[in-house]
Amino acid sequence: MSVSEHPLRKYTRRHITRTTTCPGCGIGTVSQAILRAIDELGLDMDDFVFVSGIGCSAWIPSPFYAADTLHTTHGRPIAFATGVKLGLPDKNVMVVSGDGDLTAIGGNHLIHAARRNVDLTVVLVNNGIYGMTGGQTAPTTPRGLTTITSPYGTMEHHFDIAPMVAAAGASFVARWTTYHPRQMTRSIKKGIQKKGFALIEAVSQCPVQYGKASKLGSAVRILEYFKENSVRIDKARAMEAEALAGKIIVGEWVDIAKAELTQEWTELRRKLREESECHKLI
């Protein structure tokens, strides 16, 4: 028996016939990893609210996914998502956006949402460059890379997102590359189920802008680079800093249970309501 359409298409809007990304872009792989996680958990798209900002990867949920989607202003999806989650605590709120959106323009929202431990699942697609606007240096661009805004190579150090968010207090933090889509799906499943702030950093290939800047060129060569330079976190912990230079550490940083903001709010509301009921009786 042959099928007439991809089975994961049942989670996408009917009028969107193909993904919005360039050929070979890793965003589609991340998009599929998210849908597969939802499919494997047996969840309903109606129980989700997807929030995205501005950038290529913000196009993952909006307009592609057949769910409630909020396509917000640049850098602010986590701020919008915090409001959605506190207003609708029963929904699974997922933020899908890029490194330029969530760590550059919206960097403070990211670390403070992790500090507050709001029950959000954040899938941060990190391609190491501003892809949509033409390949400018981003805070995630590796040091020394020549981009259109750093013709002599960028002199700045880059953000190490996963450990940064782990240090800010998130409940669940993982990083995988698009060479590890199965592991990524597993971590997204854990992130959705986690009561608390969950970040899944998806290191992804931008064959057009990053491929040009790094001289790697094609999607396949960047994937090869991910394959050769990924080190699992358990192995990395036993390695010297020098040996880890230029490597991408993948794995799960944090997986803990701690007090979560939405629950605290719900509990406070219940307590105050009970108190006011008592006063009325007196």
Binding site: M1, S2, V3, H6, P7, L8, R9, T12, R18, T19, T21, G24, C25, G26, I27, G28, T29, S31, Q32, Y179, H180, R182, Q183, R186, K227, S230, V231, R232, K235, I248, V250
Partner: peptide, 24 residues
């Protein structure tokens, strides 16, 4: 990345490739 391939498996197939096999 483009939802363009779907592989249907029959029962006599070996299990899906080990998840951690290609993990760094």
């Amino acid at each position: 990345p483009d939802f363009a391939i779907w592989v249907e498996k029959t029962d006599d197939q070996p299990a899906e490739e080990d998840e951690d096999k290609n993990a760094g």
